[in-house]
C-alpha cells in the first residue's frame, strides 16, 4: 500500500518531466524482480522436493528390484523373498473396483449431463458427488467394514475391498465423464436427433464415442488413486501375510500399499525388512508413474487426433 503514498512521485508529474526511469518506477521494477524470484524459488523447491522423494525411493529401491522380487511370495517372516501376492492382490482390487465404479460412474455422468433437468436436483446430486469425493478414505474403510464385511457378511474379502475402493473411485469417474460430455457441442446432439435417431441412439453412437478419450483418461487416473489407497482396505480385505494367491472373490489378499505399511512399521525384524520396503515403494511409484504417463499420452494423442480432423 505504501507504494501509493503521497511521497511517491505521481504519474501525472512524471509526464511533464521526462526523467525515466523514475525512482518509483525502478522501485516498482525491483519489487517485482524480488517477488518473482521468490516465486521461482518456492516453485523450484516444490519440484525439487518431489524429485527428491522419487529419486530417494528409486535409488534405494532399484538394487532390490529383480525378477525374483516380482515373482516370489515373501519368505522368512517377510524379511526376504518377493512381493508377488501383493502385486496380484492390488491388480485384483483395481480390476474389481473398476468393474463396479466404471459402469455406474459413467452412467451417472451421462444421466447428470444428458437426462437430468438442470436445476436444484442436479445441483443436489453434484453436491453429493463432491461430498463423496471429499470424504476421508478411512471413513470409507469404516463404512465398508460396517456394510460389506459385517452387514452383508462378505467377510474380509476381495469383493468387500473392491466395492469399498469402487465407492472411492466413483466421484472421480462421474466428474470426468460429466466434464467430457459437457464439452461436446450441442450441434452434434441436434444433428443426430434431426436425422431421426432417438436420444439413447444419439448418446450411444455419437456422444459417447466422442467423449471416450477424456472419459478413459479419467478412468485411468481413478485406477491410479485406487492402486495406492490403504485405509479403505485395512479392515475390508487386506491380509498381513498370505503367501498363496487369491482364488475367489471371497478370499483375502495382500496389497502393495498395505504391504509397504506393514513392512515399514511392524514385523519381526524392521532392519531386515528395509530393502523389501524400498522395493515395494518403488513398485508402487512405478505403477503411479506408468498410470500418469499413460493418461497424459492418451490425452495428447486424442487431442492431436481431434485437431487434425
Amino acid at each position: 500500500m505504501q507504494r501509493f503514498s503521497p511521497r511517491a512521485p505521481q504519474p501525472a508529474t512524471t509526464m511533464n518531466t521526462p526523467q525515466y526511469p523514475s525512482a518509483y518506477a525502478s522501485k516498482k521494477k525491483r519489487t517485482e524482480q524480488i517477488v518473482f524470484f521468490l516465486f521461482r524459488l518456492l516453485s523450484g523447491a516444490v519440484a525439487l522436493s518431489l524429485l527428491g522423494i522419487l529419486g530417494f525411493i528409486i535409488v534405494k529401491g532399484f538394487s532390490v528390484l529383480s525378477w525374483d522380487f516380482l515373482t516370489l511370495p515373501p519368505t522368512d517372516g517377510m524379511t526376504s523373498g518377493g512381493i508377488l501376492p501383493a502385486i496380484v492382490g492390488t491388480l485384483c482390487l483395481m480390476a474389481g473396483s473398476a468393474c463396479f465404479a466404471f459402469p455406474i460412474g459413467i452412467m451417472s455422468g451421462i444421466y447428470m449431463n444428458e437426462y437430468a433437468r438442470k436445476g436444484k436436483l442436479v445441483r443436489f446430486i453434484r453436491m453429493m458427488t463432491n461430498n463423496l469425493a471429499g470424504i476421508p478414505s478411512i471413513v470409507f474403510g469404516l463404512f465398508g467394514m460396517a456394510l460389506f464385511v459385517n452387514y452383508l457378511s462378505f467377510g474380509d474379502s476381495i469383493l468387500a475391498g473392491s466395492l469399498t475402493l469402487g465407492l472411492l473411485a466413483l466421484p472421480i469417474v462421474i466428474r470426468t465423464t460429466e466434464e467430457a460430455l459437457k464439452d461436446i457441442p450441442d450441434a452434434y446432439r441436434e444433428g443426430s436427433l434431426a436425422l431421426g435417431a432417438t436420444k439413447a441412439q444419439t448418446i450411444w453412437h455419437v456422444i459417447l464415442p466422442m467423449a471416450m478419450p477424456r472419459v478413459i483418461t479419467g478412468l485411468i487416473l481413478s485406477l491410479g488413486r485406487v492402486s495406492g489407497e490403504t485405509a479403505p482396505i485395512l479392515f475390508t480385505c487386506a491380509a498381513y501375510f498370505l503367501p498363496k494367491l487369491p482364488e475367489s472373490l471371497f478370499d483375502q489378499c495382500m496389497a502393495l500399499p498395505y504391504h509397504l505399511y506393514v513392512v515399514s512399521t511392524s514385523g519381526t525384524d524392521l532392519e531386515a525388512q528395509q530393502p523389501i520396503a524400498y522395493g515395494t515403494a518403488l513398485v508402487l511409484i512405478i505403477i503411479v508413474l506408468l498410470i500418469n504417463l499413460l493418461a497424459n499420452s492418451l490425452r495428447k494423442y486424442f487431442s492431436n487426433k481431434i485437431k487434425t480432423k
Binding site: 519440484a47 530417494f56 525411493i57 495406492g228 497424459n296
Partner: peptide, 24 residues
C-alpha cells in the same frame, strides 16, 4: 514441465509419502 510434476505429486500414494517420512 511443472504441471505434470504437480499432478505426479498428487498421485503419489499416501503410504509411500509416509514411508519417505519415516525413512528421511
Amino acid at each position: 514441465v511443472l504441471k505434470p510434476v504437480i499432478e505426479l505429486l498428487n498421485g503419489i500414494p499416501s503410504v509411500v509419502l509416509g514411508f519417505f517420512g519415516l525413512a528421511v
